[in-house]
Design a binder for these strands. Structure first.
Lengths: 240, 240
DNA sequence: AACACCGAAACATCCGAGGTCTGTTGCAGG
DNA sequence: CCTGCAACAGACCTCGGATGTTTCGGTGTT
């Protein structure tokens, strides 16, 4: 195994064992390199890798620190991974979201504070009557994020956040190609909000299911026609 | 932004744009470094980082390649992330698993091939009458992995795989401290298998819920977090 | 007490020189 | 003609040092 990989494991172990706690500063490069028995170059590769997944945080001119290691931070790195998946596997991600979102919504109906619910309602009102597709999607992301956050489970929240990336793209296409989608989205958001405000977890769950399933159904059709050489519908545009 | 981070983004873009397809070989270090306008050292840091999340695969003496980018590979990197979370957040991960596992089991009841179901049954039989805790946990992991795989959704499968890490540890503790757990686990596994074999998704879902909830309940008590009044909330049933 | 300056510390980046591993090529033998 | 072995070249691995940049904290001035 390359020394760099060994270094990654060593640092990982130092953190897991508690030798390095969240927020702690690592020894300086030269020192740590000597301690782990490798060169600074190799150590830097290890640090950079751990940095990408948000385990370490290097500040030039200061030092290298262990992040808070909170689930949201670490799972945030998954967004990076999800970015690599385009058209073909988006449906699989959406299917997972279709499982998690209703559950999160139901939890939110039970756990959200009254203040949070008020803020959730305000989000719905902030949208203009004829919003741009971008504004709609941004508002949609905020709406679902607040609900996910309201579930009280940071892991669930972060996971949904990561999965929302591809969904957001899908929504943009949908907004561009399906006229009734905007009105329908607003209707469903209102219904979800009402259910949460009424503390009706099962109702909230159902509306969330309907909501995500709608996107999924549309996307399935869109991709199905795109893959079909005999289809006349225009295929989904490539990422620019 | 550091040069290395720019390089990471550049390489990422090269892949997403299609310039580098899965399986392709990257230009050699020196060449790519010049092309991206940085030194080999910095480039290597970028490559190492992308390597950690399984986007690139370097083979000494050969070259650097883009991986297949399949969801299972990329989400596999999440296992690394999950490893950083111990006692305190395990419950949150388990709660997510409690949402996904029943759904996956229900899907498996619908989608698994007869051959796969046969193999699943064989897994149950392979276990000795008085297995060691380690053997039991290993068998358990295989069992659930096969079901997750049977859901037909690679994203769901990989996600569950990652979440099973902490759960496995929990099971080991449980096996060591709770005597009846072994027998109960085998009973529930059999029930899940029977439900899948009978193509009864809702029955399979329910047994899976019971199964995971059992672990969750025990762990909650073991960690002494009986302060959460919502532990028993959120019925998982859902029409269709 | 508040602010500006300065130096030390630490990371960022680069470079070039060996070392090691892998795939390929060419030759000899069956 | 096909097979097996050995040498070669290409590519990554690791190293150590030199130089640039940024940040922090102490010092001196106002």
């Amino acid at each position: 195994m390359p020394v760099t990989d060994v270094a990654i494991d060593k640092i990982k172990d130092m953190i897991i064992s508690g030798e390095l706690a969240p927020g702690d500063r690592l020894p300086k490069e030269a020192e740590l390199a000597q301690r782990l028995g490798l060169s600074r170059s190799s150590l830097r590769e290890a640090v950079k890798a751990l940095c990408l997944i948000r385990v370490l945080d290097v500040r030039q001119g200061d030092g290298t620190y262990v992040t808070s290691l909170e689930p949201n931070l670490l799972l945030d790195a998954m967004t990076f991974v999800v970015d690599f998946h385009r058209d073909d596997t988006v449906l699989d991600f959406l299917a997972v979201r279709r499982i998690l979102e209703p559950a999160a919504t139901a939890l939110a109906a039970l756990h959200m504070s009254d203040d949070d619910i008020t803020e959730l309602g305000q989000l719905l009102g902030e949208l203009e009557d004829s919003p741009t597709v971008e504004a709609l999607v941004a508002n949609d992301l905020q709406f679902h994020r607040k609900i996910a956050d309201g579930s009280g489970n940071p892991v669930l929240c972060s996971l949904l956040d990561s999965l929302s990336g591809p969904t957001a793209r899908a929504r943009i296409w949908r907004g561009l190609t399906q006229e009734g989608a905007v009105a329908k989205t607003r209707e469903q958001h209102s219904a979800i909000y009402e259910a949460i405000a009424a503390r009706e977890p099962e109702l909230a769950r159902s509306w969330a299911t309907v909501h995500v399933a709608g996107v999924e159904q549309w996307l399935r059709n869109a991709l199905g026609t795109a893959d079909d050489p005999t289809a006349d519908a225009e295929p989904a545009a490539e990422a620019s």
